[in-house]
Design a protein around this nucleic acid. Structure first.
Length: 323
DNA sequence: CACTAATGGCAAT
DNA sequence: TTGCCCTTAGTGC
């Protein structure tokens, strides 16, 4: 998916584009018709990301308390996506969510060419299976392929959040709780990082890459990883995921491990500015069999909990005890 | 046209 | 551990 950084970007985007506005809410596909009817015409007053869940708060009456808000909870799952369109005042990326155009591209930037003057903009027809459509004065957001899309109460929202582990991207993200959560289990750290009750927002790329950066073998048991190393792992997640929020892309390699800027070439041999060379964005994710960017050993791959797991067998020393 | 993979998560076994 | 759900884009016949 769309890992946590994507969802935090979405929360910011909805705040900027629709915050404070009454929205027309519909379900062109029909599967969210009942929920859409509960929200249609209400004002969007709050946006919040927690792990991979996006919460949009709608006020049923002016001046109502937070307890009265109706919350739209969406979860993009493996391939959900939000697509935006609007007039010239509406400056969102075209789409935020699962990669569609090619592997590794998770956002499609608006090119500005389609931006019309406010008076000229026409609401586009929904494309594909649009579960939910939010329409404001200057733009529209369409949701396709979500794993979850439902209207819940404030109490239900609290219940969802209480089941989630600390989120490295939230100010209330509690690194010490993360360390305690991991060290309380004898499951592999590579499994624990994907468990949203242990830490929320980490997905398959951040799992593999943060373990590489911390030089921890993914099969080492949580309780066997020293607390100090877990604290550093948490701090690194905060850093690398915040970069994902800022840029909209996951880049985990350090500059010193990449081809120097100025020497990067595209496939035609032309110099490329400001982008990591192809294949140097990540240390191990989807680099099976390729040489480690640091030590040259072949990157290994295994399947763990039905997801592909990648690591460097030399930089990430094998644990004494395997799972 | 069939088949697959994709940065998830859940329930049933 | 398997299977199923959400949807799209790419591949290959």
């Amino acid at each position: 998916m769309p890992e946590g950084h994507t969802v935090h970007r979405l929360a910011h985007a909805f705040e900027e584009l629709f915050g404070g506005q009454p929205l027309a809410v519909s379900s062109p596909q029909g599967r969210f018709a009942d929920g859409a009817a509960l929200l249609d015409g209400l004002r969007l007053v709050s946006t919040e990301a927690y792990g991979k869940h996006l919460f949009l708060g709608f006020s049923p009456a002016p001046g109502g308390s937070d307890e009265d808000l109706r919350w739209l909870r969406t979860h993009l799952g493996l391939y959900g996506s939000w697509t935006f369109a609007g007039d010239a005042t509406f400056s969102a990326p075209h789409a935020i969510g699962a990669p569609r155009r090619r592997v590794g591209e998770e956002e499609v930037a608006g090119d500005g060419a389609g931006a019309a003057a406010p008076a000229e903009w026409r609401v586009p027809e929904p494309r594909g299976a649009v579960r939910a459509r939010l329409l404001g004065e200057h733009g529209v957001a369409d949701l396709t392929g979500p794993a979850a899309c439902e209207v819940i109460t404030a109490a239900e929202k609290v219940a969802v959040q209480e089941r989630l582990g600390p989120d490295p991207l939230r100010p209330d993200g509690d690194g010490e709780a993360f360390v305690r959560n991991v060290r309380a289990r004898r499951r592999a750290i590579g499994e624990l990082l994907m468990d949203q009750e242990i830490v929320s927002g980490v997905g398959n790329i951040y799992r593999a890459e943060s373990l590489y950066r911390a030089r921890i073998h993914p099969r080492r048991l949580g309780r066997d990883v020293p607390a100090a190393r877990l604290s550093r792992l948490w701090a690194d997640l905060v850093e690398v995921m915040a970069d994902g929020v800022a840029t909209g892309r996951i880049v985990t390699t350090r500059p010193e491990d990449r081809t120097p800027p100025g020497e990067v070439r595209d496939p035609e041999g032309e110099p490329v500015e400001g982008e990591p060379a192809e294949g140097e964005r990540w240390y191990v994710y989807r680099r099976t069999g390729l040489p480690c960017l640091v030590c040259g050993a072949k990157v290994a791959e295994a399947v763990l909990q039905a997801r592909r797991l990648f690591w460097c067998p030399r930089c990430q020393r094998a644990p004494r005890r395997r799972v």
